[in-house]
């Protein structure tokens, strides 16, 4: 599955880096703690979080994550968007809460 499939199936908004929708998705990781994601997320996963600041892009880039989904209608900050564009890793959005969104992502990936 690629990011584009996830965007369509979960009806996500693409905030930035639409060219990154071809990135391959290998799984998901849900956490709002950056060092938890740093220590435990794996390459190719989609990261579900409510954090919107630029450091999430540093983590996503360093960990080679496929994309980030912001939950509950949160919007990325402007320097987050810039970093997303520079790295080609999409920042996506959903109105769902992390619990529901994680469940839906789990279902389409399993």
């Amino acid at each position: 599955m690629i990011v584009k499939d996830v965007v369509e199936k979960l009806n996500l908004e693409i905030f930035s880096a639409p060219e990154g929708v071809d990135r391959v998705v290998t799984g998901g990781y849900t956490s709002d703690l950056l060092s938890d994601v740093m220590g435990h997320a794996r390459e190719g996963q989609i990261w579900i979080t409510l954090q919107t600041h630029k450091n999430i892009m540093a983590v996503a880039t360093l960990k080679d994550l496929a994309a980030i989904i912001l939950v509950k209608g949160f919007k990325p900050e402007s320097d987050t968007l810039e970093a997303s564009l520079a790295e080609g890793i999409p920042v996506l959005g959903s109105d769902l809460e992390a619990f529901e969104l994680s469940g839906e992502l789990f279902n389409i990936l399993k």
Partner: peptide, 10 residues
């Protein structure tokens, strides 16, 4: 900001 989990040094 999501730092301060006490997981960095580990």
């Amino acid at each position: 900001m999501g730092f301060g989990a006490g997981m960095g040094l580990p």
